[in-house]
Design a protein around this nucleic acid. Sequence first.
DNA 1: GTTGTGACATCGC
DNA 2: CGCGATGCCACAA
Length: 126
Amino acid sequence: MRIQLPYLQRMQFNQQVWAIARQIPPGRVFTYGEIAQLLSLPEGIPFDQFIAFRARWVGSAMAACPADVPWQRVINAQGMISQRPGAEEQRRLLEAEGVTFNERGRVDLKKYGWEGPAESAPPRLI
DNA sequence: GTTGTGACATCGC
DNA sequence: CGCGATGCCACAA
């Protein structure tokens, strides 16, 4: 019986995602894909499958994140807030941290993302 | 056991 | 640059 195994790996994966998210400085945003690239390959998962779906799994992990995780700092690769209930609050929280949105609701990832200005670059994660 | 759907990224038009 | 299709996993109904 290996019913327990996938669940435990899932938990490990989520914990890893949350640990990274907790290290995102205020006023910065990371994309799901960027977080996904920092994750280690779970045991027993084929590499190409992992590559194909890890970003989605990050989204799933964020959907179940603990209260101490700054979930609002994780957005999609287009620099936009993925639509869902709570998206408005996410934008409000980010704006309160100094993140600005353009007229189409997009964040400048060059400015606020992982690649942002060197002087305010986020610390290396993991 | 099946089906539908998702807090994504990427590639083509 | 924007919009649509695709990938073919995990989980909830």
